[in-house]
């Protein structure tokens, strides 16, 4: 446990020692607010809720999360510090978990800093704050899913750009398998069971379910499983090829 804390602290601080966390947070805040006002018609709809704000989170995560996950392991490989890290008395799993949690905490900080949106809707009207909280939880869980994928793919290469691109592609697949237009395309020829399975694999489906304000155990389990599976794969990749 202390080991994981040590890894977490180092990794979290290193995000802030470089401009990376700052750039991520600033862009996330600007885009999240900008999209909500511009395209989500935050004011014009005349409803006091944060739905138009949460709509765009999957899109923001698609490009911003790989930018913070790509360095997690690729950089360790490139600089050779992976040799230092892996010869310290910690297990691979502890290192994977500590690093993942640090990146997830950075995403959490960015998300928490959107609180002026929440203040705004409370000032303008009388929103369902339970639903808003659920939206935040759903959004953070989805960020965790993206990050776990990104961490795993980052461990497979020493090139951060490759890690970024692969993460975007895989996350894209995980997200869009839940969008109506993809499901419509598939439902023309595939059995309904397949369409349902595809939809239930998608981040988007579960994020939508949670952000409607209902925190269902199945949705939590889904994100927990996605994160667990990708981090387990991450550990296996590292154990199989540490050196090159």
């Amino acid at each position: 446990m202390d080991n994981i804390k040590g890894i977490f602290r180092r990794e979290f601080n290193s995000y802030f020692a470089t401009p990376l966390a700052l750039v991520f947070i600033v862009f996330f805040l600007m885009l999240a607010a900008g999209f909500a006002f511009q395209f989500g018609r935050f004011y014009e709809r005349g409803q006091a809720d944060l739905a138009p704000f949460f709509w765009f989170h999957p899109w923001l995560y698609l490009f911003l999360i790989p930018a913070i996950s790509m360095r997690l392991w690729a950089e360790e490989r490139k600089s050779g510090s992976i040799e230092l890290l892996m010869t310290l008395p910690i297990t691979t799993w502890q290192a994977v978990l500590g690093k993942f949690l640090a990146a997830w905490a950075v995403a959490g900080v960015a998300l928490a800093l959107t609180f002026p949106m929440w203040i705004t809707v409370n000032y303008l009207g009388d929103p369902d704050n339970g639903a808003i909280l659920a939206g935040y939880i759903g959004s953070w869980l989805m960020a965790g899913g993206f990050l776990a994928i990104g961490s795993c793919l980052s461990s497979a290469t020493r090139n951060q750009v490759i890690a970024f691109i692969f993460t975007v592609v895989i996350c894209f697949a995980f997200m869009f398998s839940g969008y109506a237009f993809v499901l419509d395309m598939v439902s023309g020829w595939a059995p309904q069971a397949f369409v349902d399975a595809l939809a239930s694999l998608s981040f988007y489906t579960h994020f939508q379910a949670i952000s409607k304000g209902v925190i269902d155990l199945r949705d939590l389990l889904y994100f927990g499983t996605v994160i667990g599976v990708w981090l387990a794969a991450n550990t296996i990749v590292l154990d199989m090829k540490k050196a090159d």
Binding site: N13, G80, L84, T87
Partner: peptide, 11 residues
């Protein structure tokens, strides 16, 4: 001490 003494440059 690994070859080349790798560490974390930003620390």
């Amino acid at each position: 001490l690994p070859e080349g003494a790798p560490s974390y440059g930003e620390m």
